[in-house]
Amino acid sequence: MGYEPIVNQNPLRVLKAGLDNTKQMGLVMARAGLGKTALLVQISLDSILRGERVIHVSIGESIEKTRSWYDDILQSIIKDSNLSKPQELIDTVKSHRVIMTFKESSFNRPKLEERLNDLIIQDIFRPNCLVLDGFDFNAASRQDLVEISELATAMDLEIWFSAVSHRDDDRVSESGVPAPCHEVEDLFDTVVLLKPEKDAIKLDILKNSGTAGNDSQGLSLDPSTMMINRD
């Protein structure tokens, strides 16, 4: 699509996502308000710039609010990249993204599958990547996650979740994945933990495409723009 320079310079390349054709399952974790959605939107936009189609599922959030996340982050990308035809990119994003919003109480796997099928069977929109923001890991069982993961495999989708961790819950898995995901971390290929530090929010990459590690590789979120940076 001609956006290779932006894609190649994206600090997200540290995460091995999108490099080969294997569709992985990723997880972004943080305490409330640290930038999970901002990071998910950047992961989503990175997919779109690579020519993929994304369905962004927002649980408990409105279309407008989700869209404004995209608009803001896209504006930052445009500003940084000096594109000659920014409108083209804006239109590309629009046509490569569908936002689905669900109320917390009305989200479940069968419903998600039905909605995805509405789009896929009629050939309206064939997604390659699914972003699930606001999924309630506290209320979900391991089986629920397994089923969503199977759905993603059947539909050949990469999938990214966000999860909220809590300061007062110190349960943590061996590799450092905090509750409420400490017992399901094995289902994920990539796990990124956002940690507030003095002037930035560090990205702790606990797992990168199946490889364990505990290194930020210099990645952080700029707290003012919420854009990902590499030292």
Partner: peptide, 18 residues
Amino acid sequence: MGSINQRRGVIVGTVEEG
């Protein structure tokens, strides 16, 4: 969604409420 798609429409999003 099908009818919108046939009309050169771009689906921005869907809202599910019950």
